[in-house]
Amino acid sequence: MELIRVKNVLKQYKTGITAVYDLSLKVKKGEFIFIIGSSGSGKSTLIKMLYREERPNEGEIIIGGIDVAKLKNHKVYKLRRKLGIVFQDYKLLHKLTVYENVAFAIEILGLNQKEIREKTLKALELVGPKGKAKSYPDQLSGGEQQRVAIARAIVNEPKLLLCDEPTGNLDSKTSWEIMKVLENINNLGTTIIMATHDKEVVNKMKKRVIQIEAGKIEKIHEEGTYQNEAV
């Protein structure tokens, strides 16, 4: 079953830079794919279009049957509630505890306290960091903070998890731990799209790799490894 279909997408920023050019791509349900490419190649722009932070100038982006490119601004929240998004800089709220940061994402849904508690604890149980629910983000290591961010991203049980360089700020050992967490989530059925330029991670994971350069798909490697001629 196809979850995402990107077709002939072109994205030109107001500055005149064309970040993504005539890009087409299909992602099946349950897949784990990497998007790789050198810095400035358009990975983040592609991810941003998938969660409709940016809107393509041309082409369509169908996610679960909906053309996200046509989604009106005031309806974007409906898409976001069905996704999880993870960033390089974690984007945690420093005034909130780990528990509150994760619960934050489902409080807006109007669930009752018990449901919020159950879902939040379940996500923290799955992702970690263990036993740190009452800590504040500043008291955690980078890897632990990223776990909190991942827990927040999956607490609403999304079908699709988007990750933009989630290991970008982490050492290789911690990166690998985070990859194990993501793989675990993927095994439970969540489709994952991860933009990265971390070769080590890509090479070890042996997933489908889509390499983009200058906004275009350069190569697709099934069970691929990082092609590092250009990197």
Partner: peptide
């Protein structure tokens, strides 16, 4: 962040 996690 609210917008990212789906706040209307």
């Amino acid at each position: 962040i609210m917008r990212l996690v789906g706040a209307s």
